[in-house]
């Protein structure tokens, strides 16, 4: 994709983020951090592509997971580790945010 197009999206998204997030009240700042943190786990998209993509011509098997018949090149191993980290980020982030927000429910 054209660099300028990507840059445009980047800059506009920052403005949108600025507008939306300045409206979050201080009492919700902690859930905002953990929730936005979960969103930054979007790197999982890249991780899935790195982990799941087929090996290219000059890649070699770097590691075999015994018992599972899974053969990994170095790039796939990096991608696989990234999937784990990003998933912890996503799942942990959204769940803990949910847990916190439950506490902010009005108790009547």
């Amino acid at each position: 994709m054209d660099f300028v197009v990507i840059l445009t999206i980047f800059v506009l998204a920052i403005f949108v983020g600025w507008e939306v997030i300045t409206k979050v009240p201080p009492i919700l700042h902690t859930p905002l951090m953990s929730g936005s943190n979960a969103i930054s786990g979007i790197t999982i998209v890249g991780a899935l592509l790195s982990a799941g993509g087929a090996m290219v011509a000059n890649e070699h098997v770097f590691l075999t997971i015994p018992g599972l018949e899974i053969h990994l090149s170095l790039a796939k191993l990096l991608g696989f580790s990234a999937v784990i980290f990003a998933t912890i980020n996503v799942v942990g982030g959204f769940l803990v945010t949910h847990r916190m927000l439950e506490m902010f429910k009005r108790k009547d």
């Binding site: 999206i9 980047f10 800059v11 998204a13 920052i14 983020g17 939306v20 951090m33 936005s36």
Partner: peptide
């Protein structure tokens, strides 16, 4: 987009 939202936040 997601990254810049979090960056701004």
């Amino acid at each position: 987009i997601a990254g810049s939202l979090v960056g701004a936040s």
